[in-house]
């Protein structure tokens, strides 16, 4: 059966994280030789030390990695392969994926209209979306999202690009580089509920370092997406979010008791 989910031309089935961006291009014998020579060089480097040792260590490490992983960046640049197998068809990143794209899907045992109605109510969002404090409906398809991360409060205005009853909800924003948050709903087969797909398109101008830093601070977008979907599923299915917060533990003695 054809899915009734509206297809956004650049949103497709296999997320970037599931695609092999570095296909095998080193043959099996060469991999063994490469790993063995690399390992030998690393061992020699550890014994030799000094500048030459450092150089040999780095080169040996690269050879070992090439052998273990089976992918050689130099071969790729030159379009070479020492494998006999046919070259895999590349799955290049689409234009939109040049942005940081995160896709996560979860199945919830509830009908799509119920899921949609729950998501559409701004009051519900802070209960499942991590770090979101409040969502304000400004009318005319605009909303303001208030977030708080380790005490830092901020807000951003988003506009609803697409709102399709029980099928899709796509948010974008006006300021800065184009970014999108899309929630697509599809029926799971056999009456098993609704497949909720969350697609985040984040701007790369924020840079790798920025992302690494925010990840340490607990704002890694992929972890955010997964935690949000998990909590949404718990709320929709079980009606509450399961936690062990505040339970007693024999391992950590509460300060109050230690002080007493």
């Amino acid at each position: 059966m054809q899915s009734k989910t509206p297809r956004l031309d650049d949103i497709h089935g296999i997320p970037a994280r599931a695609r092999k961006m570095k296909p095998l291009n080193v043959g099996p014998n060469e991999r063994v030789v490469s790993a063995a020579i690399g390992g030998g060089l690393v061992a020699w480097a550890l014994w030799r030390r000094g500048a030459l040792g450092l150089l040999a260590g780095a080169f040996g490490g690269a050879l070992t990695h090439r052998g273990l992983r089976g992918h050689c960046p130099a071969y790729e640049a030159l379009g070479l392969s020492s494998r006999k197998a046919p070259k895999p068809t590349p799955m290049p990143l689409g234009a939109a994926e040049e942005l940081t794209r995160i896709e996560r899907t979860v199945t919830v045992a509830r009908p799509a209209n119920e899921v949609y109605a729950f998501l559409r109510d701004p009051a519900h969002v802070p209960h499942f979306a991590p770090h979101v404090e409040r969502v304000e409906d400004l009318g005319e398809g605009r909303i303001r999202v208030w977030t708080a991360l380790s005490g830092e409060r901020s807000s951003w205005e988003a506009h609803i690009d697409l709102d399709h009853e029980a099928r899709a909800l796509v948010l974008g924003h006006a300021e800065g580089p184009p970014e999108r948050l899309a929630i697509l709903l599809g029926d799971a087969p056999g009456g098993r509920g609704t497949e909720i797909r969350l697609v985040l398109e984040l701007s790369k101008t924020r840079g790798l370092l920025f992302r690494a830093l925010t990840a340490v601070a607990g704002a890694d977008p992929d972890a955010w997406a997964r935690a949000g979907l998990r909590r949404l599923k718990m709320l929709l299915e079980a009606g509450e979010i399961v936690t062990t917060e505040g339970q007693p533990s024999g391992r950590f003695i509460p300060l109050t008791r230690a002080a007493a």
Partner: peptide, 11 residues
């Protein structure tokens, strides 16, 4: 072992 009673597996 704790079940929620509502998900696909509990059902």
């Amino acid at each position: 072992i704790i079940g929620c009673g509502h998900c696909f597996f509990c059902q």
